[in-house]
Amino acid sequence: MSLDDLQADIEDEYTDLGDEVGVSLDRETRNELAMLNAAFDPDDTDELLRRAVHMLFQSAVETGNLTFHLRSEYDVTYDEYLSGMTYDEMTGGNQFPQQQQKDDRRYQF
């Protein structure tokens, strides 16, 4: 997979999500959400869920967890995704490929 594959998958997922997502809650999640609603008294529960997604995303970025999963699946990092190019493309590493053949003649006189 590549940076282009990641971009295409993100666009597909974004389209599939639409504006609203129906989420079923297990007992523990419902209890925790009720506690957060009582404590923070948001205008609606949706606001807490939006905050939760933001916090999970930020945590995954800061801990490197997101990059780990992106590297495993797409062989790119989050920084590469943000810049729109891989590290090799940034540093020019793919502009001047090294010869793969062994050249012993350069040490002969």
Results as ranks from 00 to 15, higher is better:
G22P: 04
R71H: 07
L33D: 01
V76T: 03
F68K: 07
T67V: 04
E11D: 11
T91R: 12
D103V: 10
S72C: 03
H69N: 07
L3R: 02
F68G: 08
L82K: 14
S2K: 11
T86P: 10
L17Q: 13
A39C: 05
Q100W: 04
S72P: 01
R30F: 12
A34R: 14
L56E: 09
D12P: 00
D12H: 08
H69W: 10
A38F: 14
S59T: 12
D16F: 02
D26S: 10
Y107H: 14
Q95K: 13
K102E: 12
E32G: 07
S24N: 09
L66Q: 03
N65S: 15
D26L: 11
R106Y: 11
L82C: 13
N31A: 15
D44A: 09
G93D: 05
L48N: 01
T86W: 11
D4W: 00
S59L: 08
P42K: 02
H54D: 09
Q58Y: 09
M90N: 05
M1C: 07
D75T: 03
I10V: 15
L6G: 02
N37E: 15
T77W: 08
Q95D: 13
T91I: 08
V61K: 07
D4T: 06
N37H: 07
R106H: 09
L33Y: 14
D19A: 13
R105S: 15
R71I: 01
D75P: 04
G18P: 06
M55W: 03
T67H: 07
D75E: 12
D26N: 15
G92E: 01
R71T: 09
F57W: 04
V23Q: 04
